[in-house]
Design a protein around this nucleic acid. Sequence first.
DNA 1: GCTTGACCTTCCCGTGACTGGAAGCCCTAT
DNA 2: ATAGGGCTTCCAGTCACGGGAAGGTCAAGC
Lengths: 138, 138
Amino acid sequence: MNIGDVAERAGLPAKTIRYYEEIGLVRPLRGANGYRAFRDSDVHKLAFIGRARGLGFTIEECRKLLALYDDKGRASADVKALAMGHLRDIAAKIAQLRAMEATLQGLVQACAGDARPDCPILTGLAAGGAGQGAACCD
Amino acid sequence: MNIGDVAERAGLPAKTIRYYEEIGLVRPLRGANGYRAFRDSDVHKLAFIGRARGLGFTIEECRKLLALYDDKGRASADVKALAMGHLRDIAAKIAQLRAMEATLQGLVQACAGDARPDCPILTGLAAGGAGQGAACCD
DNA sequence: GCTTGACCTTCCCGTGACTGGAAGCCCTAT
DNA sequence: ATAGGGCTTCCAGTCACGGGAAGGTCAAGC
């Protein structure tokens, strides 16, 4: 199968698939004309990667997940540990974004948002209402 | 003031400050020895940028915020619009992360996490339980 | 005066995960 | 023969820096 068909079936841009080959996530065959020739297993793998990426796993995590997927003797505990580590990362990011959101919402609500120049958002940023210190980014 | 002192006072790495000069966010003077010579206003500006970055504003948004800050005749509505746009971005990211979290939590809870190889996380990724389609990434 | 060490300078490369574009080959249809 | 679409490689850019090399500068101590 050529890359265009694979892109459609796996739901990934052709560019991305070439990139995944370059970094060794997939290893399609090559036809006599130099075209990549994907097997069904490659398509399957690419769809797997696409879903893992959709859940926010990094490329390196995807590589590990693929290795676990291929390893028929794996312990599900290993997979779960990887997933739970990623869940912690997600939770941390959410917490950080919520802290930003809360601070910024406070500033926005204090701002009249009219034609006058006084703006608590700007004075807040200038005077230190937002946390470059300990308030938000640890 | 030299860059080291500025870095400490503004709470930013010296590397970052040099980068901010390179992209035109600050324009410190230069001493006869070639060292950057920062005025208080530069330090103030850098702290402002640091706090805006801490709230997740991009560099280009920081540039706009600085321009508004410098423009004494600005309308606070312009600042508020910028901040609210950013709030929407934050909310969208939070929503996306929460969708990932929910999906992944479902998979993790279904996984025994023991020495056996059966793993709903892997089968979920392989079979399409997670959204590369419409479920999570729009 | 000389050395030492901390500080400063520029320059270039690397990050993650792609995306865009140029130049050129291949295949099919007309 | 030509037109188009798809495929190939390679190079450059994204965003916001961080690491490190090679070298100039400054203040303190001997």
